[in-house]
Design a binder for these strands. Structure first.
Length: 550
RNA sequence: GCGCCAGUAGCUCAGUAGGAUAGAGCAAUGGACUUCUAAUCCAUAGGUCAGGGGUUCGAAUCCCUUCUGGCGUGCCA
């Protein structure tokens, strides 16, 4: 909010001095304290168009800007930076504004009700969710929460691949386990089959309800029954895992349902009408290479079945039909070969493919005692999302997943996530919140209650540490915009760690509640109470708890 | 082979659409608890931003190239 104020003031001043400002400049927080609270490259950027030397232009600007009493000091530095030192009174005013907003602080209409569809997780319903899905869940959900907070109209969706090859294989695996349960010797389990223990559990479960009836069905009916059963069970399992993780979806879209609605035929006919399909080797192909893909792709296999691509494309088209103007897909690391073909299809059908945005999450490596935890899907040895939540808890898991840029590998240290000390950033940040709660509680003994605080108290806040905290909390609205625009939830963790550090430092240096001055105590407590509130807002966005006691 | 992503302190990572002397945390070393929670704080040390070229007033950031690692390159999803 402060950057915007200074920026607006600069524009106003430029206009007043009849100076040109075609090119855009920035107001930023310098990384060295001596360079002021804020600085701008304004004079450097606008020097050329105003035919003046940067420093000369800066001087002219400063002369005018100095009339504003909110600036304690304005200086020229280096090649023509303008450095602003703000007055305590200005920070105090900003502080009061933030305090008044309470939990609503950070909210805005920045997103202008843009309808954004966030598709994430969308795992195959063939087993428990893995840790990459967990990462996707944390990422997508946090982005959703941030967008929602600043006025977008986002929706979360999970696409269920409940038709096609993989579910057939799942049903076959289940049948084998069921036969095994009945004492049949099944020999070596198929390489491509689902080896996980959960398939055995499913077998027991269906055996309890259906018994031998399954085996009296025709082959076709039996496969249908097994498929339905497995899908329902596994989907329920996945939904539970996600809910434990604090993630819910506005929509669950079933591939099977889409197929039943005839969208597959529709998509095929669209593509054919667009004259970009052809037949070869008894299969129907999409000439995607004409639209930027490396090669052409099969739509209908030679056996008459459809590839994954067709219903998925249909699904994406429904997103457009439903009026979403931005489509964000969060994919795992193994899907980037898929992107050119879906973009190609958008173009082939005359849609602007720039509305489709694909974010790739890189893989997650688990570490325990410094060793990489080896996982093997085939041997059924994977660490699931539930295992992770059981092991380290929702808060730590979500925090660690959010705390990395999407396209960076994530090394997840299980021991670190469990540690309850300063090595663990989750605890460090949550402790700052708990610590403030504790101080507030303590202050009651001195008959000091945050709710009764008056505006006049802000004048007592003038220490550097106090100004720093106010500046940091005032950053939040801009931070949320940056996160939403660049799809970068990880910035929340950077922010919250910085704010927590300032709070701990402040606490260590100053006595907050002191019998010497009730007013000073109240003022400091008021500052911390507001900082606590900002922590709570950020925790809420990250989907982790704000403990009052630790 | 080709394509995508990454490479910043011993480790894990920041670096805010090209800006000022590249920053945190952990680990290391040395300090601070008669205290509102020491789950904390303070100080010291730590760097050829993978290598090499280029673009310009200025590059960790943009372009080219080499090296290293991950992933992709199915009539799987």
């Amino acid at each position: 909010m402060i950057k915007e104020i200074i920026y607006a003031n600069l524009i106003e001043t430029l206009d007043k001095l009849k100076l040109s400002h075609e090119r855009d400049f920035v107001v930023e927080i310098p990384n060295i304290a001596e360079h002021g609270d804020y600085s701008t490259n304004c004079a450097m950027v606008l020097a050329k168009e105003n035919k003046q030397a940067p420093r000369k232009l800066a001087e002219t600007l400063i002369k005018e800007l100095k009339k504003n009493k909110d600036y304690k000091k304005i200086e020229i530095a280096g090649p023509g930076f303008i450095n602003f030192h703000l007055s305590p009174a200005f920070f105090q005013r900003i502080f009061w504004e933030i305090r008044r907003k309470g939990m609503d602080f950070g909210e805005s209409d920045f997103g202008k009700e843009h309808k954004v569809l966030l598709e994430f997780v969308s795992a195959n319903p063939t087993g428990p969710l893995n840790i990459v899905s967990a990462r996707a869940a944390a990422f997508g959900d946090t982005l959703y929460r941030v967008m929602k907070k600043i006025g977008y109209a986002p929706a979360r969706e999970f696409y269920i691949n409940d038709a096609g090859n993989q579910v057939d294989i799942l049903a076959e695996s289940l049948e084998l386990r069921l036969r095994e349960l009945h004492g049949e010797v099944i020999g070596e389990f198929p390489y491509e089959g689902y080896h996980g223990e959960y398939v055995r559990e499913l077998a027991q479960k269906i055996n309890a309800t259906d018994g031998v009836r399954v085996f009296m069905m025709t082959e076709k009916d039996r496969m249908e029954r097994l498929k339905d059963f497995a899908l329902t069970e596994i989907l329920e399992m996945q939904r539970n895992s996600l809910e434990r993780f604090g993630v819910t979806f506005e929509g669950w879209v079933s591939e099977k349902t889409l197929r039943a609605e005839g969208v597959v035929e529709e998509v095929l006919s669209y593509l054919t009408e667009a004259d970009c399909t052809f037949e070869k080797d008894e299969a129907i192909w999409f000439a995607s290479s004409k639209f930027g893909d490396d090669k052409d792709r099969v739509l209908m296999k030679s056996d008459g079945s459809i590839t994954y691509f067709v219903p998925d494309l249909a699904y994406h088209l429904t997103k457009l039909q439903r009026g979403f103007d931005t489509l964000i897909d969060v994919f795992g690391p193994d899907h980037h070969g898929y992107v050119p073909r879906i973009r190609a299809a958008f173009r082939a059908l005359g849609h602007d493919d720039s509305v489709l945005e694909i974010i790739f999450l890189q893989q997650v490596n688990l570490f325990e005692s410094g060793e990489r935890v080896k996982m093997s899907k085939r041997a059924g040895k994977i660490v699931t999302m539930d295992d992770l939540i059981d092991e380290v808890g929702k808060d730590a898991a979500r925090y660690f997943f959010i705390a990395r840029k999407a396209n960076a590998h994530l090394n997840f240290d299980l021991e670190l996530a469990l540690q309850q000390n300063n090595e663990n950033p989750v605890y460090y940040c949550q402790y700052a919140h708990a610590r403030i709660c504790s101080i507030i509680k303590n202050a009651r003994k001195a008959k000091i209650w945050p709710r009764t605080f008056k505006k006049e108290l802000i004048k007592r806040l003038n220490k550097t540490e106090e100004m720093n905290i106010i500046q940091k909390i005032s950053d939040l609205p801009e931070l949320l915009e940056l996160i939403a625009v660049n799809r970068e939830p990880y910035r929340l963790s950077v922010y919250v760690e910085e704010l927590a550090a300032m709070i701990h430092r402040y606490y260590a240096r100053y006595k907050i509640v002191s019998p010497k001055s009730k007013e000073l105590s109240q003022a400091r407590l008021m500052l911390l109470d507001t900082a606590r509130n900002v922590l709570a807002i950020v925790f809420e966005l990250m989907g982790i708890s704000a403990p009052e006691k630790m």
